[in-house]
Write a protein that binds this DNA or RNA. Sequence first.
DNA 1: TTTCTGTGTGATACCATTATAACCTCTTTT
DNA 2: AAAAGAGGTTATAATGGTATCACACAGAAA
Lengths: 226, 226
Amino acid sequence: MKRILVVEDDRNISQLLQMYLKKEGYEVTPAYDGGEAYRLFEETEPNLVLLDIMLPVMDGYGVLSLIREKGDTPVILLTAKGETEDKVGGLRKGADDYITKPFEMREVIARVEAVLRRGQPATKPARKLTFDKLSIDMESMVLEVNGEKVPTPLKEMELLYHLASAPNKVFTRNQLLDEVWGISYFGDSRTVDVHVKRLREKLEGISDQWSLETVWRVGYKFEVRG
Amino acid sequence: MKRILVVEDDRNISQLLQMYLKKEGYEVTPAYDGGEAYRLFEETEPNLVLLDIMLPVMDGYGVLSLIREKGDTPVILLTAKGETEDKVGGLRKGADDYITKPFEMREVIARVEAVLRRGQPATKPARKLTFDKLSIDMESMVLEVNGEKVPTPLKEMELLYHLASAPNKVFTRNQLLDEVWGISYFGDSRTVDVHVKRLREKLEGISDQWSLETVWRVGYKFEVRG
DNA sequence: TTTCTGTGTGATACCATTATAACCTCTTTT
DNA sequence: AAAAGAGGTTATAATGGTATCACACAGAAA
């Protein structure tokens, strides 16, 4: 589920935003001033930030700068009517979009979805890896073994791709859960075992150039010999 | 590296254009009104200008005239749907090409490249694809199956064409919504499912050389075997 | 060896995702 | 105005990936 950080000091507006966004299926965290905003940004690692410009303690631009130092999480600015210069400034400083108050909820939802949608293609690594008789193509989502296609579900593909993109590196189960399943995932680490097992079923005896190895009390690695 | 000046007052559209163009390796400068456009034109001396007609302060034609006074930097106009007269007028006044909103990013990239390469308008790309017993002709808007015409609505044609122009590549629903339905579309992604279903009804059992495949938790692809 | 703890495996049920059908709305045609 | 077609939405059914459990098994330590 996508997480959204709503930074807005007006409780009424914040409340309203939270309500509508939750109704659309987002996980919403409210912040009511700049300091809190930044703290919660680091804590919850949201997929998107709705950021009011006029804030107590630290204004929106300060928060935006701090967020930009940390990465490229999409940010939509909330500006009061007529703050035209603010708009341009905000966008120049790295916001992805802006909405002018008073806004219609329909518009907010639309822009949130648009910005999240745009972020997606960039997030998809979509690459291709080849080892001996194994080919992992995330572009067409095809796993090939000895030149033969092997139908493989998304999660297994992602796991294998992730392991294989750093050959011989050992990943702990928690690392894999974080990096393949996502940070907001809190399931059992046995889950990784199961997926490794399924991959092994598909990949056993193919090649002696590589294999999925268990590293006791640590995790797994995609081992390449030679 | 080629520099492109994007003159577009709608932040959403501008942002999207910037993103896609950067991804293609261009250096992109955004301008949000006519005055800024001209200032940045002189400042950055771009290799090409993408120019929206409807602009605040000074409209696209004004900017175009000024640019033409300075030289023959290629200009591609962005026009809203149905502004047919604008198209002709724009070209007469010295634009090199035009694109009608809502546009597909694929089309924009294609025309940008064409104009930069030849200094000439993109003759509409071949816009015809053939696979075994299937022929998709976007020129005459005809879908042929086994040499027989199959009446097919516009959206279905566009979707099929888009999928088929990158065989085996998986497109997410959101990608398809952006690239086929256009960036200003904010509908439900189930819409894609429905159109795929309708296409399948028309295309089932034609050939074993290709098919429209579902990729679980990802999207769809036009799969070609062999 | 025994014991302890971590890991592999099979079975199962849940639930998110997708397919399908039916329904609306809007536009064009007759 | 009625009919027909396109495009989109919603409701419901079908699908099948995934998480989790339980237990067997294996490696490490004593």
